[in-house]
């Protein structure tokens, strides 16, 4: 068993990390907002951790706090993501559907090109030698795992709260939600901020995990990957991003024996999954459960 985790530890941590990023895209979607901004905040969070971890100016902090500097990085990354999300979100969330998606793609690209050109972010080379929190890669499960657990509990509570119901009301019909006295702008921005904070914190945890950080961490490709996780997993419940993120992020690794053709297969999976699993995996499993229940209680179906 130990050997299993030694060999596959990295992959498992990546699966959890990608699942968390899929969830960061799910929260805005809960309120009906298709935002692809997560990689921008993920990149920002990573740079916060990489800069605090390596720049000379912060060395007194690192000496004084020891490992305590890591939670501080998460906190700062979260706060900065929240601020940026409010600044970007208030104007951008007046847009709907594909227009919002395009605006957030533009946001991600602007963040990427800016990071590619600033000195503090290490330009095109990026930042190397980000201090590690743990010695082994597998040990990072002790930060990503609890974060996932916290986010699952948070999502569970959120769905049953006033805020969560407001999100869903906006998703189903924004005009009607507005008419019922829900402050739609506030809740839409809130959903956007929740996703941004999560992506920022995951970024700040990932920079030490990957040991290096550069502008390739937050790209359009990543936006699409997260969207694929959510839609193929199923966009109607938190189980969607969980299933989609874990399975699809493992897919390239599982297909590794196929070498060069693995990304071709990956692409085909995206095509066929979007065609044949309209409600996502979570939806398909839900239907399957329904079929089994009907099977065991035949009288239920006729009522």
């Amino acid at each position: 068993m130990d050997e299993f985790f030694q060999n596959n530890g990295f992959l498992i941590v990546v699966m959890v990390q990608q699942t968390l990023l899929a969830m960061s895209l799910y929260y805005p979607l809960m309120a009906g907002q298709l935002s692809l901004a997560s990689p921008g905040f993920y990149a920002l969070g990573g740079y916060v951790a990489a800069i605090i971890g390596t720049v000379e100016y912060f060395s007194p902090w690192r000496d004084a706090l020891g490992w305590g500097v890591f939670p501080l990085e998460w906190l700062i990354a979260g706060v900065m993501s929240a601020l940026l999300a409010v600044i970007v979100g208030i104007p951008a969330l007046r847009l709907k559907g594909i227009y919002l998606a395009l605006a957030t793609i533009a946001f991600v690209e602007i963040v990427r090109v800016t990071c590619l050109n600033l000195d503090i972010t290490g330009g095109a080379i990026g930042i190397f030698g980000v201090p590690q929190l743990f010695e082994s890669r597998w040990a990072y499960i002790w930060i990503f795992g609890p974060l996932l657990a916290v986010m699952l509990y948070f999502s569970y509570r959120l769905e049953r709260s006033r805020v969560g119901r407001a999100f869903k009301a906006i998703r189903e019909d924004e005009l009607a939600a507005d008419a019922m006295g829900i402050n739609t702008t506030r809740y839409k921005v809130l959903s956007f901020v929740i996703g941004a904070v999560l992506a920022g914190i995951v970024g700040a945890m990932s920079a030490p995990f990957l040991n290096t950080w550069n502008a390739r961490q937050g790209t359009f490709d990543a936006s699409i990957a997260y969207l694929a996780y959510v839609l193929i997993g199923g966009g109607r419940s938190i189980w969607g991003p969980l299933l989609g993120g874990a399975l699809l992020s493992a897919l390239p690794e599982v297909l590794r024996p196929l070498k060069d053709s693995r990304l071709i297969i990956n692409g085909l999976v995206l095509v066929f999954a979007s065609i044949y699993l309209p409600q996502g995996l979570a939806g398909a499993l839900g239907r399957l459960k329904l079929v089994f229940r009907r099977g065991s209680r035949p009288s239920g179906g006729g009522a």
């Binding site: 694929a228 839609l231 692409g267 999976v269 995206l270 065609i275």
Partner: peptide, 22 residues
Amino acid sequence: DSLLALVSSLGVALVLVNVIQY
């Protein structure tokens, strides 16, 4: 849902680009 067209077209893009690379 039209969002799915987004994912499926990206899937095709991924296939095309990697077929070229292959």
